[in-house]
Design a protein around this nucleic acid. Structure first.
Lengths: 229, 229
DNA sequence: ACCGCATAGTGTTGGATGGACACTCCGTCA
DNA sequence: TGACGGAGTGTCCATCCAACACTATGCGGT
C-alpha cells in the first residue's frame, strides 16, 4: 500500500515531555531508541500521527504504547519544524507537555519491550534529534506556568503535606521559599482542603495532609480569581 | 509530478493572525477566499508549507504574497489539527501570531489580485474552516501577553504620545486605565525615551512624543527585570 | 485680543500585599 | 527521659496599587 500526492508533504509526529517529581528532583521521561537514526540514544517518547486521530490523541496514544502512561494534565507545547531537524527528511513535530504523579507511574516505566526511564532534568544524557531543545522549551514553560496556574498539584499525590508542596515549588522554581510566607499565602487562597489525617511512617512529628480543591478553583477562576505563586 | 509515501501524511499549512491598531479599534487582517472550499468567505492569510522552508518562513512568505505585509513581531501561536477541520481531508495548520504598525501597512492591504482587509476584532464576518477558533486563541494570547511583555509597542508608530500608549492598552485589555497611575508606572520603568518633539496637527495642546527603548529593555530583561502591565 | 475648548500634565493618601525573620510544639527513637 | 528532626505559628516594615481633581497650554473662532 502506498499514498500519492500532487505536492510533497512533510511527515508529522508528536513528541511528549513528561515531567514527574520524586524526593530528589524534577524528572523527565525518556525512551531509548531501538532503531536508526540515533539508535541507542535517549529520546522523548513520540511517534507518527495517524490520519484519523487528533494531535493530542496521538500524543496520548504514543505515551500509552511506549511507557504505559496516561497523564492527567497534557497540553500542547510548541511545534518544531526546522527543515533539517530529522536526518530522514522533513519531519514536523508537535510537542506536548505533560505532568504525572510519579507514584502512579514508577512501575510502568519500562513496558512494551522498550527501555523507558526517568532522568533528572538537571542531568539528562545526550538526546536524539532536537529533543534537547524541546526539553528546554518544556522546562521553561513549566517554570513559568507553575507560578500562575495551580498545575504543580499534578506532580504530587492527591494528599500531601505543606512541606511537600513547598519542596515541589522550590525544585521547579530553583529557589528557596520562606516557610511561613508560603503557608500563609497558600492557605489564604482557600484552595487547600485540610484533612483529618497526618502523614504516616515518619520518624518525627507527622505533618497534616491537605488536598487541592479542583472544584473550588474552577469556580474561583470563573469569578476572575488568579492563582499566583 | 507526484510524491508517493508508504504511509498517508496530512497536509501541513500555516495560518497567520495579524493584529493592527487604528484610532477606533483593534483590527485583524483577513483575506477573501477565491477558491473552494469556502469560496467568497473571509479567512486568515495562510497556505501550504514548502519542503525546504521553516514554519515561520512559510508564514512570512504567505503574508508577503497575500497581503504584502512583513511584520516585525511574529511568533508561533498554536497548532490546530482536529481531523475534520478541513473538508478537503486531513490538514494540520500551525498558526502564527503577528503585530504590525497599521500606518505602515494600510496601503498594501489589497495586493496580488486578492482581496485583503482589516476588520475590527469585535466585528468579524463568518470565517472559513476553524479560523474563528484560531482568531479567538490569538486574541486571548494578545490580551494575556501584552501585560507582561512590551509587545504592544509593535502596534504603535515609533514615536507616540503617552495617551496613544494608554489607549492601546485600553483597547486590548478592554478596560479603562487611570491616566496618572498609568503614566507614573510606565515612566518609572525608564523604558520610554522622552523626545524633544510634540505631536503635530492637533487642534489643542500638543502632547510630548516618546520612543520605546528596545535596547534598554533587552539589557534589563537579561538582568531579571520583568515588564508588567 | 480674548475666550472657550479640548487635551496635556501633575501628587497625595490609605489600604493591601510581600518579604524578612526565630521560636515553641510534638512525636520518635535511643 | 532527653535529644533530635521536622511541624507549625505572627509581627513589622517597606513597597506597591488604586482612587481621586485640578491647573496648564495651544488652537480656533469671534
Amino acid at each position: 500500500m502506498s499514498y500519492t500526492y500532487d505536492y510533497p508533504r512533510p511527515s508529522l509526529t508528536v513528541d511528549c515531555v513528561v515531567f514527574g517529581l520524586d524526593d530528589e528532583d524534577l524528572k523527565v521521561l525518556l525512551i531509548k531508541r531501538g532503531v536508526e537514526p540515533f539508535q541507542g540514544r535517549w529520546a522523548l517518547p513520540g511517534g507518527f500521527v495517524r490520519m484519523d486521530e487528533s494531535l493530542e490523541d496521538a500524543a496520548r496514544r504514543e505515551l500509552q504504547e511506549e511507557a504505559g502512561i496516561r497523564p492527567n494534565l497534557m497540553e500542547q507545547l510548541y511545534t518544531f519544524g526546522a527543515p533539517e531537524r530529522d536526518p530522514r527528511g522533513r519531519v514536523v513535530s508537535v510537542a506536548y507537555f505533560a505532568l504525572v504523579k510519579l507514584s502512579d507511574h514508577r512501575v510502568h516505566a519500562a513496558t512494551d519491550a522498550r527501555e523507558a526511564a526517568w532522568f533528572s532534568v538537571y542531568d539528562v544524557p545526550k538526546l536524539a534529534f532536537d529533543h534537547a531543545d524541546i526539553l528546554a522549551t518544556a522546562h521553561q514553560r513549566l517554570k513559568g506556568k507553575v507560578r500562575y496556574q495551580p498545575i504543580g498539584f499534578e506532580l504530587l499525590p492527591p494528599k500531601f503535606t505543606l512541606t511537600q508542596l513547598q519542596r515541589m515549588y522550590e525544585k521547579i522554581l530553583e529557589r528557596e521559599l520562606d516557610k511561613r510566607n508560603f503557608r500563609k499565602k497558600l492557605l489564604a487562597m482557600e484552595l487547600l482542603e485540610e484533612l483529618d489525617e497526618v502523614e504516616q511512617d515518619v520518624s518525627h512529628r507527622a505533618a497534616r495532609l491537605y488536598r487541592f480543591d479542583h472544584k473550588k478553583y474552577k469556580q474561583l477562576e470563573k469569578a476572575g480569581f488568579n492563582f499566583e505563586l
